[in-house]
């Protein structure tokens, strides 16, 4: 498997607080990689650094062998590296179909295309993806009127509409009704297999991430603590200590 995303020695400080310290990890193409760690261990900071919200203090981030360390958020997104938000973000005063339509890939859009209507294929794709996440019947409701869980599903569908190569998911099951979590895991696996989208997932729910990911990275206090298969991570004493708070 070729490497899709290569993070090397990334450090990020906020004032005196070290959020990320020399983190290196790589995401192989086609994989599902998990990122775990206790609260405040720097997972979301790393996400933000990868997709371009923060300037990093040291290190390099490469996507498809291309240096993206200095690119900005929209440029990185147009390369096919997309993220979802922990506090779900959708376009609240537009209906679901419009939310989906405006999420079509923007990489090759010229000036003229902004005046065009959306082609029929886009509409069909939007509707089939809405069906995939189970929101088809709600497609003409304002996205802001959906429940939190439904908004989360919509955000996921919007990300798929954008046809990313790598999708960074920030806690896809947080705040979701536990009975629906299995459905989400299954959908993530189908997305990975059928659409060939590589996934990098932050997740707090251990049983979810152990079932989902082929490889896990565990952060603690801004450092990369351990990497390995779910089995290795599960039995790693350092990871257990980090979660239980042993000094």
């Amino acid at each position: 498997m070729t490497t899709l995303l290569e993070v090397q020695g990334v450090s990020k400080r906020f004032g005196g607080i070290v959020a990320n310290e020399a983190i290196s990890l790589s995401v192989p193409e086609g994989g599902i990689i998990g990122l775990i760690g206790p609260n405040g261990s720097g997972k979301t900071t790393l996400f933000n650094a990868i997709v371009g919200y923060y300037p990093i203090d040291a290190g390099s981030i490469r996507f498809e062998d291309r240096e993206i360390t200095r690119l900005r958020v929209p440029q990185i997104a147009r390369l096919g590296l997309l993220r979802t938000f922990q506090q779900t973000r959708i376009y609240g005063r537009m209906d679901c179909v419009h939310n989906m339509l405006i999420s079509t890939p923007h990489a090759h859009q010229g000036l003229w295309s902004m005046l065009t209507h959306f082609p029929r294929e886009d509409r069909e794709k939007a509707e089939s993806l809405l069906e995939f996440v189970g929101l088809y019947s709600k497609r003409h409701l304002l996205a802001g009127d959906l429940s939190f869980g439904q908004q989360k599903l919509l955000e996921f569908a919007m990300a798929l509409m954008n046809e990313p190569k790598l999708l960074l998911l920030d806690e896809p099951t947080a705040g979701i009704n536990p009975t629906l979590i299995n459905g989400i895991i299954e959908r993530l696996q189908r997305v990975n297999e059928r659409l060939g989208i590589t996934l990098l997932v932050i997740e707090h729910n251990m049983s979810v991430i152990m079932n989902l990911a082929q490889e896990l990275h565990c952060l603690s206090r801004g450092r990369l603590l351990a990497s390995g298969t779910p089995e290795q991570i599960r039995t790693d004493q350092r990871v257990i200590d980090a979660y239980l708070g042993v000094q």
Partner: peptide, 14 residues
Amino acid sequence: LARNLLLGRKRQYL
């Protein structure tokens, strides 16, 4: 405008 330029250079708007 100057304030915005300074903020923009930091590539941080979140």
